[in-house]
Computed example of a mutant assay.
Amino acid sequence: MKRTHLPLNGLRVLDAAARHLSFTRAADELAVTPAAVGQQIRALEDTLGVVLFRRTAKGLELTPEGAAGLEALRAGFLQFEEAVRAMQAGQSSKTLTIAAPRDLTAKWLSAHLSAYGRTDPDLRFVVVAADDELDFTQANLDLAIRLTEGPGEHEGAALPASGFVTVGIEGGGENRIGWPGCPQSEASPVMLTVADAGLAIDAAAAGFGRACVPALLAASDIASGRVRSYGEQLAGVGYWLLAPLPQWRQKKVKSLVAALLQ
Rank of each mutant, 00 (worst) to 15 (best):
G10E: 06
L147P: 02
G76P: 05
L8R: 07
L260D: 07
T137L: 06
E45K: 06
G59Y: 00
Q91S: 12
S93Q: 03
L147W: 13
D221K: 05
L113Q: 08
A130F: 00
V50D: 03
L96V: 06
K94L: 11
G168Q: 07
N175L: 13
A72G: 04
G38K: 07
I201V: 14
S229Y: 01
T97S: 11
V165T: 08
P189F: 03
A106H: 07
Q88N: 14
A68S: 06
L70M: 04
A139P: 04
F77S: 00
S188F: 09
C182D: 08
V128H: 09
P7Y: 07
S93W: 01
V167T: 06
S229L: 04
L73D: 01
T47F: 05
A161F: 14
V237W: 15
L241V: 10
E149S: 14
W240V: 11
A130Q: 03
V194E: 01
G59D: 01
L60C: 02
R55N: 13
T33P: 07
E65F: 07
S162G: 13
E153F: 12
Q184E: 12
Q40K: 12
T95M: 15
A16P: 02
A26C: 00
V126G: 02
L134T: 10
F80Q: 15
I41R: 00
S185W: 00
V32K: 09
D120E: 08
Y230R: 05
E61Y: 04
L21R: 01
P34Y: 00
Q138I: 04
A35R: 15
G66Y: 00
G76W: 08
S185L: 01
R19N: 09
D142M: 04
L96E: 02
G209N: 13
V194I: 09
F53H: 10
V227H: 07
K254Y: 10
H5I: 02
D15F: 09
R19A: 12
D131P: 13
A161E: 15
A211Y: 10
A200F: 08
G207T: 00
V165S: 06
T119H: 04
G198T: 12
K94Q: 12
T47A: 09
D46E: 15
L48H: 01
V190F: 05
R118F: 06
K58D: 13
F80P: 09
L70V: 02
P180N: 01
L217N: 05
L62N: 07
P64D: 10
L242M: 12
T119G: 06
Y239S: 10
S22F: 00
L147T: 06
V167M: 06
L73E: 05
V127Q: 05
D221G: 02
